Computed example of a mutant assay.
Amino acid sequence: MTTPAIEHVQAVAFDLDGTLCDSVQDLAAAANATREHMGLPPLPEHTVESYVGDGLANLVHRVLTDSRDGQVDQNRWEQAFTFFIRYYREHLSVFTRPYPETEAGLSLLKSLGIPLVVITNKNEVLAAELLKQLHLADYFSLILGGDSLPEKKPSPLPLLHAAEVLGIAPADMLMVGDSANDILAAKAAGCLSVGVTFGYGDMTLLSQEPATKPDWLIGSLPEIYENLQPQKAQDE
């Protein structure tokens, strides 16, 4: 895929799960602890992975029903959600780690003086705590979770809010993510969308549909820096 014109980038926004870090093992452990608590058998890790991306409230519905579109009654959901959040908060980074080149990519971008933000559908408190535990929090000027604003991705609202806080035009911000929600939010906000090929989403599949086709595909975060600094990269 041709790299778009990105010489005017003034900020970079990142999704969290499946983009900055691989968190499926801990999410699956929390999901199956919750299922056990509710008298249900465990789910395979890859099944839980397919349910990630639309916030923890939706994840709990999906985990209880073993269906992407499943819904349970409010009382049962509240009981399970309370347990899930407590368990997950206590086991945020048992297995979760940044992807191999995450910190290198963030360091390179930070060296350019470009503000970096996290826009995730994970609850803000959990996202901030996870970034702290992974020693990544200091790279970011702003962390927005799925409960920070009235709407979450694929709504453009979190991206528009981030751009407003940073005092830049949405067109001057990149949105980097692994899912349809990230690309849809970027397109709706007027940001350039960058899809990572190593996350949970199937970028090959998403790229086949105009609505979810990212402007740019990358296999590692340092590629962003290399394309923002083409002359520098060539010199080196």
Rank of each mutant, 00 (worst) to 15 (best):
T3Q: 05
I6S: 11
V9W: 09
V12A: 10
F14I: 02
D15F: 03
D17K: 09
D17Q: 07
G18H: 03
T19F: 09
L20W: 07
L20S: 01
Q25P: 00
A33V: 01
E36K: 04
L43I: 06
P44K: 13
H46K: 06
H46M: 07
H46N: 13
V48F: 05
S50D: 13
D54R: 12
G55F: 03
V63H: 02
L64A: 11
T65V: 09
T65N: 03
S67A: 13
V72Y: 10
V72P: 05
Q74T: 14
N75D: 11
I85V: 15
I85F: 04
I85Y: 00
I85Q: 12
Y87T: 01
E90W: 01
H91C: 09
T96E: 10
R97V: 12
A104S: 13
L106E: 05
L108C: 06
L109G: 05
K110G: 08
K110S: 15
L116A: 06
V118C: 06
T120V: 10
K132L: 10
K132T: 15
K132P: 00
L134M: 14
L134W: 09
A137I: 15
D138T: 13
D138K: 12
I143G: 07
I143K: 08
D147R: 12
S148I: 10
S148E: 03
E151Y: 15
K152E: 04
S155T: 04
S155I: 14
P156I: 02
P158D: 07
L159T: 14
L160Q: 11
A162R: 04
E164P: 00
G167W: 04
D172I: 10
V176W: 09
D178L: 04
A180K: 15
C191G: 01
G195Q: 06
V196G: 12
F198W: 15
L206E: 02
S207I: 03
Q208Y: 00
K213D: 09
S220P: 00
P222E: 06
P222M: 06
P222T: 04
P222D: 08
E223P: 02
E223L: 01
Y225C: 04
Q229E: 08
Q231N: 11
K232M: 13
Q234G: 00
